[in-house]
Amino acid sequence: MSAADGLLPELAALTEHHRERCQPYARILDALGVPREFSDVEELPWLPVRMFKTHELRSVPDDEVFKVLTSSGTTGGGASRIYLDKDAAAAQTRHLGATLRAVLGPKRLPMLMVDTVGIIKNRREFSARGAGVLGMATFGRDHTYLLDEHDEPDVGALRNFLARHGGAPFLIFGFTFMVWQYLYEVAREHSLDLSNGILIHSGGWKKLADRAVDNEEFRRRFRADTGLARVHNYYGMIEQIGTVFLEGPSGDGLYCPDFADVVIRDPETWARQPIGVPGVIQVMSTLPRSYPGHVLLTEDLGVLHGVDDGDWPGKRFSVLGRLPRAEVRGCSDTFAARGAAA
């Protein structure tokens, strides 16, 4: 029995939990005629992730909402709103920590942030990037921010950090394109040694595509030019906060933590795609209890590479990019909002 099957009872119970507590969710499931019992995780009803942008979906009463997370609305339709109660907020930190300990070890490491301290100081303009940085900061100590207030790399600060901490394992965190643009290029230029670093990064490859840098090239050049060999990309989204799919040590794909699972679906039939065939990524996690985000259809394309055949046990997969936006012809304002018209 794979880990995924092991999650079925818990995910099915969560479906029932949200069905009882979140009326809009219950209405969707009723309209779809979703049964009360499931024989496979694949049968669980998924929500398009964009539903959190268009609707208020929560399974806790108003007075128990402890924190509302909002994402930047990059795909139109505004920002996602994710409602957490106290338990959910604590659980997401705990589970994220457990996932990261697999690569960071039990102790908090000195941490280099490939970002500016301004990103978390300016609370009024708190962004998804800021939330990511702040969320990750918990897992390190003695934080150094690589970028100064003008978003320029501070080579002196980087040298100081390496002088103090570079001789033992340290943690590096940042968004993929910033890690490349600021850390890689600066470290190479100044011949800095990052060989004790463990890099955790995320954010996608779109901005690096025009530099012809993909995951393989990223890893290869970091290793060759800075000595940094422990590199873990991860995939995660605010709508499943606390759940990250972490890349294996050799870069052979993203892996599910033991409380999460992934299915790749055919966008035409929505059937499960076999290994090697790209499709739309569906993510499942037992974490979301305060909002019905436990089974989500993302707007990302991905492909499953294998099961129990890589660095770690379980499924391994890659994210291939965003679903291309649908271009629509027509005469209404709708399309202006979708970036296609007047």
């Binding site: 969707i28 964009r50 679903l323």
Partner: peptide, 25 residues
């Protein structure tokens, strides 16, 4: 069917159901 349009269909239909406007999808 463009995949993004297929997702948009779901978002639209689910949205109407969530708002209580649809009884079947």
């Amino acid at each position: 069917t463009d995949p993004a349009m297929a997702v948009q269909q779901r978002v639209a239909g689910y949205g109407m159901a969530a708002d209580g406007l649809a009884s079947g999808l």
